[in-house]
Nucleic acid binder design. Structure first.
Length: 901
RNA sequence: GCGCGUAUAGCUCAGUUGGUUAGAGCGUCACAUUGACAUUGUGAAGGUCCCUGGUUCGAGUCCAGGUACGCGCACCA
């Protein structure tokens, strides 16, 4: 344990208010932290070899901070602050996600209130509006994250749609496509008729609903269905091969009377049919059922589209074309009824209705031409393993560990059953699929068949088809699944794929490295945007010398270049700059109006990707393990060839007092910001972390937060007391002298060890509880009470300093405020060195003696109480045998007794 | 159907590898208060650790079976 505090000024206790008022200090402290630069790993003091990084789950731009976010921020901030104090080079990278469907829905809702639809605006205008909305949300999100005290590096903040991340998305798509893992195909997909888009399998939710289940006479068999409206084209009956009831029919064809008149049906046998279910015979509808589609592929059956993208019937329904599903169902049943083909109807059938996870609309499975990511295809890059196999392997062999461990099983189960991922969406907002189509080639059927009418351009906006040079080309109208870009989050935010390169004059290289040059002018756009990292080389030797992370990118006319601003050395005049330019850009004529790109950057010897990837831990709620966690593992293991994180810590959901999910419609949500206003951010953080265990939901009510507000205030008053005691005294030399001193020293060193162990093992609740208890019920209740008698204020001051460090990750605001008030050090508590336990200070004898003292005092107090002695009166008791002289006054005071001889 | 979680004080929950008398916060009851803190202090009451069986010198903890509540996945002709 290192004590280095010195106190040479007198305290002015009157300056410390009686009650802690978070409002007056929190904002200022956050600003101080931010301005210190210590959120940024590059600016942390000292040599920090080991990196520690967390990618903050990107917040949806739709959202306002809810209690779940607050949990996430509290936990991650604890991890980051702890590791920062332990001397690691800590990066916590924040950002936002465009959340395509969710965001688009919000804007569509706004439009609806104005009586408009997105089609009224058209794609371009609509997108402008969505973008405006997303931008307007940004500031608020940042403010809310800050409000909770999150010590994340804002200089590295990213947005899934920013230029750098879009490059990453394109690059990812291109790589996967070139490696044959992304393909385009006509397959059955989940279609949301309201969102007008496909959904991935895990974006479909199931709701139980009672629907009639119909039994129809279909030739010689009776078939059951919940969806009569899809049955127009059913021509194939499937039965189980071992089902004796139908054995004679297998392989035969016959004519049956059906919805639109007689059709020819045939019978096949396949083991997928469950003979126990319904009548044991079914007809198949390949165009609108996943199972039937698989069967149709197996037997080469035709696939007919009965329902269109708007949820209406197609030509296949003959006269019923255009009818919405609901009405069509009624009509079909009526027709079959009139033909006497209804066997019976089961009205009590419980159906698992599939609905869209974003809007609740029933899903229509239908066949559509979409883009897919093949998860079961052997990939060269993975040594002929599939994406799925690799993603399972890294968890199986413990490269990635889940906390709590049980989620490993959940993950494995999901991954094993994963089908090819449909990645194209018909949502407008998002990353457009980077594929271009040529109408001229399309018109040529042969090329169409060969799939050669589309290509992936190298540059973003091609002007002509590379094959026929025709100009009638357009980009794919679809966008990528939001989770495609979030799947890249751990590495796309760290500068992957680093395709951009910039040369520097050999004379400047040293200046760049030393940080004397932090700005560069270019006549050609390097297409660099804020947050991106670019590789740099010496233009003479072509040797790589490091990386630049772009802080600002602007375009100005040549004559507006301000050479006087910092960081642009070594040019002394515009003429000199012009000469330099001319040397590197001999083909460009420089006029005063020539546009110049100005890049401001910081130099990094190692790129963020090299330093911070794989990230140390991913912390998020367990409900997005599939959507996000699994996708990141798939993407990272393939594209970067690295796991995205070493540990996945999953927290539970926050529920209301009654255990219900918090939701807008129930109005039972607890707003973390309102709570922070009322009780302070520290109290909110403590309430969300203490008394909870990973992976388990927690019930929260305001009382709990109020309770921790009391604790924060207690800590404040401990500080206030020490300040008052120490007024005017020199506190620089602290030595344990009395038994109580040795005891508190011993306890402190024990507790340091325990807390550090808990934190390393992600036992945040237990670590928090222990330090909470130590500060209040050992240090304040016992040690400080004795201090009033013995007066070793210097020691109290020092021990409290250590307590502040231990508490800091949990309650950063109040501890930082006290650190300052009590004059512990010039620099911020947030970068103090985490206490280390000194085993030589652990003193079992002192602990034992003190425990006996505590027992004695408690016993006297109890006796007093039982005897009903009046409050003010001191009770006389005989001196116990063997009482050490030094303890006498302590007992007399704390137990309010007086010893008679 | 498959898998998972939870069950401990009135309430909300901790309880690490099995080890004296099972803990905390809130709530309850009683008492205290002119100097750190009533957002406080002191003391107390309060438990068949869901049930049954097993392993063990010893089980809240491990094993088997069951009950209740919750969740995920699948099926859904």
């Amino acid at each position: 344990m290192v004590f280095f505090t010195s106190l040479d000024k007198s305290f002015m206790p009157t300056e410390i208010p009686k009650a802690y008022d978070p409002k007056t200090v929190e904002q200022g402290l956050y600003k101080a932290w931010e301005e210190s630069g210590y959120f940024n790993p590059d600016k942390l003091p000292g040599k920090r070899r080991e990196a520690y990084s967390i990618a903050m789950p990107p917040f949806n731009v739709t959202g306002i901070l809810h209690i779940g976010h607050a949990v996430l921020l509290a936990l991650q901030d604890i991890m980051i602050r702890f590791e920062r104090m332990r001397g690691k080079k800590t990066l916590w990278l924040p950002g936002t996600d465009h959340a395509a469907i969710a965001t688009q829905n919000v804007v569509e809702q706004e439009l609806k209130e104005e009586g408009k639809t997105k089609y009224d605006l058209g794609r371009e205008q609509f997108l402008e509006r969505v973008t405006r909305f997303a931008d307007s949300q940004h500031g608020r999100i940042v403010e809310q994250i800050s409000r909770m005290g999150a010590s994340c590096d804002w200089s590295r903040e990213r947005f899934t749609l920013d230029a750098g991340l879009s490059t990453a998305v394109t690059s990812a798509f291109t790589t996967l496509y070139s490696d044959g893992l992304i393909y385009r195909g006509d397959r059955i997909v989940n279609w949301c008729p309201r969102c007008q888009s496909t959904l991935a399998d895990d974006e479909v939710e199931y709701k139980e609903k009672k629907t009639p289940f119909y039994y129809f006479k279909y030739g010689p068999v009776v078939i059951g269905t919940a969806r009569p409206e899809t049955k127009f084209g059913d021509k194939v009956i499937v039965v189980h091969p071992d089902d004796k009831r139908y054995a004679k029919l297998v392989g035969t064809s016959f004519e049956v009377e059906w919805i639109l008149g007689p059709i020819t049906a045939r019978v096949i046998a396949d083991p997928v049919v469950d003979p126990e279910l319904g009548t044991g015979a079914m007809t198949i509808t390949p165009g609108h059922s996943f199972e039937d589609f698989a069967l149709a592929q197996k037997y080469g059956l035709p696939i007919e589209k009965i329902i269109d993208e708007n949820g209406r019937l197609t030509e296949a329904a003959g006269p019923m074309k255009g009818l919405p599903v609901k009405e069509a169902r009624k009509k079909v049943v009526e027709i079959l009824e009139s033909k006497g083909l209804v066997d019976h109807i089961d009205e009590n059938y419980i159906h698992n209705l599939s609905v869209c996870y974003r809007c609740g609309t029933p899903i229509e499975p239908l066949v559509s031409r979409q883009w897919f990511l093949a998860v079961d295809k052997p990939a060269k890059r993975l040594g002929n393993k599939t994406l799925k196999q690799r993603a399972l392997e890294v968890v199986e062999n413990n490269e990635i560990a889940f906390v709590p461990d049980r989620f490993t099983k959940v993950y494995r189960h999901w991954m094993e059953n994963l089908h090819d991922w449909c990645i194209s969406r018909q949502i407008w907002y998002g990353h457009k699929i980077p594929v271009w189509y040529c109408e001229t080639c399309h018109a040529d059927q042969k090329k169409y068949q060969a799939g050669k009418y589309y290509w992936l351009p190298e540059k973003n906006t091609p002007t002509a088809c590379p094959r026929c040079h025709g100009q009638d080309i357009h980009q794919d109208h679809d966008t990528l699944d939001t989770w495609f870009s979030s799947g890249l989050w751990t590495f796309s935010t760290l500068g992957w794929p680093m395709v951009k390169d910039m040369g520097f004059d050999p004379a400047l290289v040293d200046l760049v490295i030393s940080g004397k040059k932090t700005k560069t002018f270019r006549l050609r756009d390097h297409d660099l945007s804020v947050g991106e990292t670019c590789l740099t080389h010496d233009s003479k030797t072509k040797k790589k010398f490091g990386y630049l992370r772009i802080l600002r990118s602007t375009k100005i006319p040549f004559n507006e270049i301000a050479l006087q601003t910092a960081g642009h050395e070594p040019y002394k005049s515009q003429a000199e700059l012009k000469t330099t330019f001319q040397k590197y850009y001999p083909d460009i004529t420089i006029t005063p109006d020539t546009p110049v790109w100005v890049y401001e950057y910081i130099y990094q010897k190692e790129s963020d990707l090299e330093q911070f990837h794989p990230t140390s831990i991913l912390e998020t709620a367990y409900d997005i393990i599939f959507f996000w966690v699994a996708r990141m593992i798939l993407m990272s293991t393939y594209l970067v060839g690295e796991i995205p994180f070493k540990t996945v810590y999953l927290h539970g959901l926050v529920r209301d007092k009654k255990g219900r999910k918090m939701s807008k419609s129930l109005g039972n949500g607890i707003d973390p910001l309102e709570m922070a206003d009322k009780y302070g951010a520290d109290a909110v953080r403590l309430a969300l972390v203490i008394g909870t265990t990973p992976g388990n939901d927690q019930k929260l009510d305001e009382q709990k937060i109020a309770g921790f507000r009391n604790y924060v205030n207690k800590v404040w008053n401990i500080g206030r007391f020490i300040a008052m005691q120490g007024e005017g005294k020199s506190l620089s030399e602290a030595k344990p002298e009395t038994m109580a001193d040795y005891w508190i020293f011993s306890r402190l060193n024990t507790i340091i060890q325990e807390i550090s162990n808990h934190l390393v093992k992600y036992e945040f609740s237990q670590a928090g509880e222990k330090i909470y208890d130590f500060a209040w019920h050992e240090f304040a209740d016992w040690y400080l009470e004795i201090t009033k008698l013995e007066g070793n204020v210097a020691l109290a001051h020092q021990v409290f300093g250590e307590i502040l460090k231990l508490l800091h990750p949990y309650m950063p605001f109040v501890t930082e405020a006290l650190w300052r008030q009590l004059g512990y050090g010039k620099d911020l508590l947030m970068i103090e060195i985490w206490p280390s336990s000194d085993p030589s200070k652990i003193n079992p004898a002192a602990e034992k003696k003190f425990a006996e003292l505590q027992q004695t005092i408690t016993e006297y107090r109890r006796q007093r109480k039982e005897s009903g002695a009046p409050a003010g009166q001191v009770m006389s008791v005989p001196v116990p045998t063997g009482l050490a002289g030094e303890l006498k006054p302590i007992i007399e005071r704390l137990a309010k007794v007086t010893f008679t001889t």
